[in-house]
Nucleic acid binder design. Structure first.
Lengths: 227, 227
DNA sequence: GTCTATATACGGATAGAC
DNA sequence: GTCTATCCGTATATAGAC
């Protein structure tokens, strides 16, 4: 399973993601024609991520967004009631997709070594498909409302716990040998995050996501299989 | 050399840092009595880091800062000409200290293995002493002026290159065996950054900087000494 | 040196025309 | 559904009193 296979199997086009957002927010969105909502939500979210990742969500004014999304201020406000609600729509949906796919793909494996590989590869591939959002979510977390912050932290810890559980299970079954599963999970997480946080550095050096995945797996396995 | 030794040897009190800032900015600071400048700069910088790390530098208004630093708006503006200049003072000085100490302590070792240990430990210890600033610098980099962004990236790459050079040197001398020194340096950097980016998580789990340093060293050494 | 008061610009959000 | 025009609050920065 490499990145190309992953992309084929998992359907995650921008429009699919926006269609899900629309269906979950039918009540609050005043515009009613699905094709139009999906098209405009895609513009809005893309522009939001583009501007925010350049200079920060709070520094993005609604006028910026209106210009970048090619919509008037009035039009924007028929898709959400406030800047904060725009954010919540985006966050909820992306978080849900991430969790769903991560859970699915880990559950397909039963051996600890295979589960660990699935977790690492899937996380890297997800962050490759939705790089802009992963980056946004990490960098903006602390600037958002208390509620959004808590959700972000919970989502962080959930991923870390997925890894820690696999490591613990592997240790019990004798597949891995390691001293501190919790700390090991933390630093694996740090390596996974580096992939989407330093995207342009890796792009410049022509490191592909598959190369990075192989490298991280080797690095981790040298630690948990050997000493 | 553990963290307690490091603290004793390296003098890095908040006031020492602010005194350096004052001496480098005598021209632009209108207040002239050193003890007063140092005291107020300390207030200003502490408050800046405190507020910015909670909700972002751009979201910090000068009124916020004035309240948190216990100084009037007018008083603040006699220490800098603009919010941007305040930032540049802080960044320049901290970056310089970090580079100076990192270089010094690596230069004291000659064997690759010892140099690597010195680099990792020193970086972790520096980020422990100046956690708020390291966090700030990472999280705000993209929101600052082009000039500040470039300086931040250069500083990032400098640290990574320090690590990569040590790894390369070790490989040539036969001390390390590794396939990709550049990628190895990148993921080590990611682990070092996790320490100051997730400070409160590690604090909650009662992981000390010395424990974390030992763990990272083991993790890295399993990869470059074994396979 | 530090304060209060204020100039001026820009922020989010909405009303009402089309 | 979308647009333009506008309300009102808050931002940075400064002037001038003490």
């Amino acid at each position: 399973m490499d990145y190309a296979d992953f992309q084929k199997k998992i359907n995650l086009s921008k429009y699919d993601l926006c269609r899900e957002v629309y269906r979950e927010n039918r009540n609050s969105i005043r515009v009613k024609k699905e094709y139009k909502v999906v098209k405009n939500l895609e513009r809005i979210f893309s522009a939001t991520l583009r501007i925010s990742n350049r200079k920060g969500f709070q520094a993005m004014s609604m006028r910026n967004l209106s210009r970048e999304a090619n919509m008037s201020m009035g039009a924007l406000y028929s898709y959400f009631a406030s800047k904060e609600e725009l954010l919540a729509m985006l966050q909820n949906q992306r978080r849900a997709v991430t969790k769903r796919i991560l859970d699915e793909r880990i559950a397909q494996e039963s051996e600890p070594a295979a589960r660990l590989r699935a977790a690492i590869r899937t996380h890297l591939y997800l962050s490759e498909v939705m790089q802009a959002w992963f980056y946004f979510s990490y960098m903006e977390a602390k600037n958002l409302s208390k509620k959004e912050q808590d959700l972000a932290v919970a989502s962080e810890l959930y991923t870390e716990k997925l890894l820690a559980d696999i490591l613990n299970q592997g240790q019990i079954q004798g597949a891995f040998e390691l001293r501190d599963p919790q700390l090991t999970a933390s630093v694996i997480k740090a390596m996974l995050q580096d992939w989407y946080l330093k995207r342009s550095k890796y792009a410049k050096r022509r490191v592909s996501v598959d190369q990075y995945a192989r490298f991280v797996l080797q690095f981790v396995e040298a630690f948990i299989l050997d000493h």
